[in-house]
Design a protein around this nucleic acid. Structure first.
Lengths: 207, 207
DNA sequence: CGATTTTTACCGACCGGTCGTTAGCCTCAA
DNA sequence: TTGAGGCTAACGACCGGTCGGTAAAAATCG
């Protein structure tokens, strides 16, 4: 393909490239899976040679790790921190579900941004990186579980609720969104978040 | 690993090998993903050379397709058909959730059997095979959705339930099990199925 | 300011290895 | 003797990753 020669610059700023690579890789990882995506695929998506890619990225695994770390950061900032702002466990759970759904929804909506969804990819990481991401995921699970426990302590949970199972089920409802939610559909993201929040709460609260 | 020598044969009957290959492949696909699993992995798991594998299997994609087809067959036989035995939509939904959970749970529990879980692997299939499996999955989704619709017609659904969203959310609760359920845990599969069924129903029914 | 050096942002070629797949040979039970 | 059930060997394509090189931009210097 022909070279560009506009304003004498064929290159792009490094910061842009970095972001571009992370976004493109995240999108591809979500679409084709981690092992199903080759470094050439990513390079092609950002318009660079594979060799050129390795100027910005240390390894494929490190790339996945960086994306996952960033995703966990966002989850913490946009879900955990706002939830900590209230002491009422019911409000807290509402915020958790609502913001988590919106977080994933945005990740699917916003052009090129699938960062948060990649966190579901568990395979592909090994060693310390694997350990760290696993620990962060477990911490989040524990945070939600504790919220359910607090709700139980207030006697607000239905008697047939098993807290660990209920926690995983609610998170499953949310995580599974990536398999069916299509951006630009019938519902706005806010409406969707409301619906899922209601359903999740109803699934555990006393009638 | 030791050879079996029953009836003086170091070889295995072709039917056994076939099953063995499907089970081993299913397990590996669930654990490491489709693209993350190589034919060598599968061959090693069943104690055959990679080339030897190709006597029984036409291609990697066909192998995945066969496993998925088998999984869909089981889902139909163990979930859809029993559900059709009743006309009451509430009973029907109860059967769907309960049996689907048990189906996936057994797939995780039973040694070497992960068949049903593989159905979640959507990538890896192309062309007609992809189309067919997609259609069968959509038909199942539609079946569950229709059940919710019937429930709605009886006025039993909570007013804030959106049927398509609620259907996907319930199926998400179930499908996500593969990510957290560990066989031989605190609960029996029956107990687990009861818990999830209750929670799923509570999530959509009028209080 | 212009000249020079250093750094940035890449590319083409290539590495050893593994991928899915095939061809052809051997072996043993029926 | 035949054919099911393997085997060894090898294929071309592609994998993640590296190497040496380089044009252009930025920093430094006289």
């Amino acid at each position: 393909m022909g070279l560009q020669k506009l304003t004498g610059s064929t290159r792009m700023a490094s910061v842009n490239r970095q972001e571009q690579i992370y976004f493109a890789a995240a999108r591809l990882f979500v679409d084709k899976g981690y092992s199903g995506t080759s470094m050439s695929d990513i390079a092609r998506a950002v318009g660079v040679t594979k060799a050129g890619l390795y100027y910005f990225v240390e390894s494929k695994e490190k790339l996945l790790y960086t994306i996952m770390s960033y995703g966990m950061d966002r989850l913490h900032r946009e879900v955990v921190e706002p939830a900590l702002a209230t002491d009422d466990p019911l409000d807290r759970l509402r915020i958790i579900v609502r913001n988590h759904v919106k977080n994933i929804g945005m990740a699917l909506d916003v052009k090129g941004n699938s960062i948060t969804s990649v966190v579901n990819e568990m395979i592909g990481l090994t060693g310390e990186m694997r350990t760290e991401i696993d620990a962060r995921k477990r911490a989040y699970l524990e945070f939600v579980r504790d919220t359910l426990r607090a709700l139980d302590a207030q006697g607000k949970l239905d008697s047939s609720v098993d807290i660990p199972v209920a926690t995983s089920s609610i998170l499953g409802m949310i995580a599974w969104m990536t398999h069916w939610h299509k951006p630009g559909g019938r519902l706005t993201l806010d409406q969707l978040a409301d619906l899922i929040t209601d359903q999740a709460l109803r699934s555990i609260l006393k009638s």
